[in-house]
């Protein structure tokens, strides 16, 4: 993802940053317009689409039965995959996932797994023999920056609206997927010495480095990942964590808690 960016544009974004402004007039702590739609793919057990500015991410959740891992015989399995679809950007190519895609998938997965978002014990059908496997497939439809936050949000929203198809397996009624936590990922970019949330594509291209923080509803951190080739100071890391937790709480309240009430 090394799109060539004009030095002029880089200077422009830097100069704006010094004045405390951003290209599209947002503040450093403002997200772009965010739209969350759920249950848009009826064939999937759960689905959600997030539109963040011009970024579009679609997540479909499929459930299948399978064998548990030998060391966690009474637990379901979570599998996350992320596709950088060639339709999303001229830079994306068809073929096996590149390291960016693998990294993003693993960050999304880590947030969901480590926060204990899914009650995986309830996905067990027969101990040691049969469990539900939750496939979270993230499709990037349009890349206008900050794919990770959109992916995290879409993934958790899709999971929250997922129905476990017990009837299909003849093991009782269909029930909503048991959720315990709502992790939200927030990515901060460092431009100059400033941190800002929800980078646009241009900001991502000129930024020195990014830090994604996935936090839970109790304000604790479930996963972190630094991406990009510059460094953070310790103070910046701590500041980023605070900013991320704050923004995550906002997003959770605005968009996700409504999904819980629906149930």
């Amino acid at each position: 993802m090394s799109e060539i960016i004009a030095t002029l544009k880089k200077d422009y974004i830097y100069n704006l940053m010094v004045k405390g402004k951003r290209q599209d007039g947002r503040g450093f702590k403002d997200f772009r317009d965010l739209k969350l739609e759920t249950n848009i793919i009826s064939k999937a057990e759960g689905s959600a689409k997030v539109t963040l500015g011009d970024t579009q991410v679609l997540v479909g959740v499929k459930l299948q039965t399978g064998t548990p891992f030998p060391d966690s015989q009474d637990e379901g399995v979570i599998i996350t995959n992320l596709e950088l679809n060639p339709i999303a950007s001229p830079e994306f190519e068809p073929g096996p996932p590149r390291e960016e895609a693998i990294e993003m998938a693993r960050v999304v997965d880590r947030g969901i797994r480590e926060s204990g978002a899914i009650d995986i014990k309830k996905l067990c059908i027969t101990v040691g023999e049969s469990v539900w496997i939750v496939f979270i497939d993230v499709h990037i439809l349009n890349d206008d920056g900050n794919l990770i936050d959109a992916s995290c949000l879409a993934a958790i929203a899709a999971l929250m609206t997922t129905i476990v198809p017990n009837e299909q397996q003849g093991i009782g009624m269909n029930v909503p997927l048991a959720m315990k936590e709502i992790p939200v990922g927030v990515t901060l970019v460092k431009i100059g010495s400033k941190l800002m949330v929800d980078p646009s594509r241009d900001e991502e291209a000129v930024c020195e480095t990014k830090l994604t923080v996935v936090s839970s509803s109790d304000g604790s951190v479930a996963g972190m990942q630094k991406m990009g080739s510059a460094s953070f100071t310790e103070a910046e890391v701590l500041e980023a964590i605070d900013m991320a937790c704050e923004k995550a709480a906002e997003l959770r309240e605005l968009y996700l808690e409504a999904l819980v009430k629906q149930e």
Partner: peptide
């Protein structure tokens, strides 16, 4: 200067500060 940060698990911001 911190050049790599990864994390998984459950930590509060205070614990992260202590850990750093």
């Amino acid at each position: 200067e911190i050049t790599l940060v990864q994390m998984d698990g459950h930590l509060t911001p205070e614990e992260i500060k202590e850990g750093l």
